[in-house]
Design a binder for these strands. Structure first.
Lengths: 222, 222
DNA sequence: TTTTATTGATAGTATTACTACTATATTTGT
DNA sequence: ACAAATATAGTAGTAATACTATCAATAAAA
């Protein structure tokens, strides 16, 4: 994918000061991705981050309320980016089957290229979404945060794909559940492939996570 | 299910002192389930727990190394209990299709009865497995803990069910991934049904999580 | 009855997750 | 060019968390 000259728009409620508005802010975002990947979300602190960016804790706190909000910001950025890829990738494709196939590839295939956005390493971001994003969603604050619209992008993606499913088979009973379980399952299976290889049915020729879900979805929708 | 006079055996490496060995230990386990459910794993502390059981922090630390190990203990207990239900439920059933159906019900249906074990409220335990157990698996310690065998019960369950899948269709390519994504997906979809109802394809007559996965699995295995 | 194990009570430490305040440095408006 | 606003660095401080250590009291086992 070529380098893009557009920005991903993120809800201003997620930050105190827009990290896109300054070099330091961009550094906070890019270095936090690297640090969270390295230390895990539990081990990650604003103190360590501020050291990494040669700044102070108080400065980081001027951008994000706390590390949970920062992680939520990264999560929203990720899903907005995925939605952008979905819109771009399925544009002008007539056959819904073909659109679904492309969309499933985007959702289930590993992220290997990192060049579309300047300060965000998308490969690393994908990695922390795999291994850390569950901690964002499984919170006591989930209902408040859902009300504030922090998950609308994610839900939009689910709706977008289930619309394609309904286009292919209007009688299929569970389009939303099929898609959301595919999206989350793909991340989960990637994590398993890294840590529980015995639970992964590998094949030499193809990426098994991707082909498993493609097979599963098309079989269900049929 | 009737009250059982058997114990779930848990790896001794999960605790410092077996909580089954004393009344206080059992109280630690039962009250921690209630507190984790109430406060969430992040809000839960050994200090609050010790207050709840009218004891002290140091006493709780004599049973479990930290709250992560306690949650891991509960998770292992839960999966052992599920495995017991699977063995018991599919015993003496000849047809693999029927065995798979029963197994899927056990895995995907909500837990409503609480009476098999004295000090453990299985309904609440299921609830915290739904909303908190991801925090146990998504850790930097995962590989060490996997090596120590803390996930063998879970993997046994996956293998047990994928064996049935292979019995039905020896040519199906992804038995392990199908089962593990069903097990985890069912928990995930339960959480979604509680917090993102718009992503759930409800039907009046049946439990949609359970029927979605039953439909999905049988369609895939064909 | 002595030993041993179990628990309670208290204290203490390092780290985390913040909040508040001040002093510069930089940018911006006029 | 200068005053005003803004951004950042630096320091300090607090409450809570996640422990560890020690010691006394008590109950159970040898």
């Amino acid at each position: 994918m070529e380098r893009l000259f557009l920005n991903i728009a993120i809800s201003p409620e997620l930050y105190l000061k827009n990290p896109e508005s300054s070099e330091l802010g961009k550094k906070i975002v890019s270095q936090s991705i690297m640090l969270i990947d390295e230390l895990g979300f539990e081990g990650f602190t604003f103190k360590k981050l501020s050291k990494q960016i040669s700044s102070t804790e108080s400065t980081v706190y001027r951008y994000f309320e706390n590390k949970h909000m920062l992680m939520l910001y990264l999560t929203c950025w990720y899903w907005s980016w995925v939605e952008y890829k979905l819109v771009f990738g399925t544009h002008n494709i007539k056959l819904p089957q073909e659109r679904l196939k492309i969309a499933l590839d985007i959702i289930t295939k590993p992220v290997t290229e990192d060049n579309s956005f300047f300060h965000i390493n998308e490969v690393l971001l994908h990695q922390i979404i795999i291994s850390e994003s569950a901690k964002v969603i499984y919170t006591k604050e989930i209902d408040n945060e859902n009300e504030k619209g922090f998950y609308t992008v994610y839900k939009q993606i689910v709706n977008r794909l289930s619309d394609i499913v309904k286009e292919i088979n209007p009688n299929y009973e569970y389009p939303h559940m099929l898609i959301s379980s595919t999206i989350d399952g793909a991340l989960h299976q990637r994590y398993f492939s890294q840590h529980f290889p015995s639970l992964i049915d590998n094949s030499k020729s193809k990426d098994c996570v991707s082909s498993f879900y493609t097979d599963l979805v098309f079989n269900a929708v049929k």
